[in-house]
Design a protein around this nucleic acid. Structure first.
Lengths: 252, 252
DNA sequence: CGGTTTTTTGATCACAGTCAAGTTAGGTGG
DNA sequence: CCACCTAACTTGACTGTGATCAAAAAACCG
């Protein structure tokens, strides 16, 4: 896997000048609210590639926003198998737990080196208390995540291996496009085939064979850390993809 | 399928005297907040068995709380296959959407006859605005749902058919138990085998064969609209079940 | 009691998993 | 810049789980 991902850059000190906020796809947040959010932020930090941000079973302490790089939320089973719940891209929040007293129900791992912002749990609760609109925004983010998870459940449960993979590639591409990080059918793609397998509940060998087939069929190619969508409409049709669930959302 | 489910009863006019609120498993809500919630409620209604409460694509208008009976949230694919996302039991809320302007991303169907409470979307937004704690509770419910969905994703993605089924039965039983509607290893179970299949991404025939096997093995039995957990610890071990994700939660 | 839905059982098949061996690419250090 | 080492990818052969198709039995409901 070519590590085409440059060193992750840290976010600016001021949330108002966060470059992510200039991206159309993210719902804007009022200036005064942003100021309070900024005060709630406990800091920004780097995490190196291939390491764990938090583990299933840990007590939840912070909510995170991914600023730069790729990560994944996943579950590990007793039998050693891994299920990736969601790939995290810049602008995605994670670590929100129902009950701050209970343990985290999944693990978050980095794929590339990563930069993220952290918000202590009690600060988030304070924000919900003080800013009614913030509570609504948090609900929005959560409901969005649930919607994405439903789509993944259906994808894994009711589609063939080929369709799953096509759906997955198109989803990643659309999300990168929303973040203005894709163009001309090409975008960064630092996932290993075994990561894709863990996200789609397939074996790495099957993913490999299907990628080869999609390349042969001129539909999509993954090569040297990049994803190329060669025939978007063809692939979209072939795997019944739709991007209804990738609606704009607020973040932080 | 024996319809052992009696006629669904309507909830009382006052939320404070709602019998569901007396169940330990649900987080209590302050009296004054409950009064406001009660005012936000647009009404209670019956829906007959086997019908649709709302459909994917509909504009979201209301949030619902299931008061009595069983229902399911599901997605229908173009190829006719159905994926059940979650079985809804009394006390479960559903219909919460990220963005009230977008369309609903799943369908809600009744399994038995059902009684439910409805809350118009704008009233819910008003509640979030007026009651800071309410916003937090809504987040809690959403995060809980996400947690459950993650568990289902892992179950379907990474377990064998046998384990999936055992996990599913134990989950339903534990949830019924939490609702004080199960005892001595027995609880109502109005699902058809094809419903179980759609929830677990299996074929109905496979579900049938596995149920027969579990019966033979003295682990669990489904018969005449009832679920019998014959050997709970055995079944729990056999399918790596855990109920960590079934934490108490608020509702309404 | 009769019609319909659901469950049960059997036979066959195919998709994707597993195992194993070989190749390529990327990263590291001389 | 090249040699080496490891991790990732590739390919082939075989297997097995669970799907599909079909037909009979049972349960349910009016």
């Amino acid at each position: 896997m070519a590590n085409t991902h440059r060193k992750a850059v840290l976010p600016p000190l001021q949330c108002t000048s966060c470059p992510l906020r200039r991206i159309d796809h993210f719902k804007s947040i009022a200036k005064d609210e942003l100021a309070k959010i900024e005060r709630a932020r406990s800091g920004a930090r780097h995490v190196r590639a291939g390491s764990t941000i938090y583990s299933e079973g840990d007590p939840p302490a912070e909510i995170f926003t991914l600023f730069d790089g790729w990560a994944a939320r996943s579950k590990l089973l007793e039998n050693g198998k891994r299920q990736i719940l969601n790939i995290l891209l810049p602008g995605d929040c994670f670590g929100v737990q129902p009950d701050m007293t209970s343990e985290l129900n999944h693990t978050a791992e980095t794929i590339t080196e990563v930069a993220l912002c952290a918000f202590p749990h009690d600060e988030v609760m304070r924000l919900v208390r003080d800013l009614p609109r913030f509570g609504w925004q948090l609900c929005w983010m959560l409901a969005h995540e649930e919607s994405v998870l439903s789509e993944h459940l259906t994808n894994i449960g009711r589609r063939t291996a080929f369709e799953r993979l096509g759906f997955f590639l198109l989803e990643i591409y659309a999300r990168m496009e929303n973040r203005e990080a894709a163009a001309n059918g090409m975008c960064p793609f630092p996932l290993r085939q075994s990561d894709i397998a863990d996200a789609l509940a397939l074996s790495a060998e099957t993913v490999n064979r299907l990628l080869a087939q999609m390349d042969r069929d001129g539909l999509a190619r993954v090569s040297r850390g990049r994803l190329y969508i060669l025939n978007r409409s063809g692939l979209t049709r072939a795997c019944e993809f739709h991007d209804r669930f990738l609606t704009p959302k607020p973040f932080l």
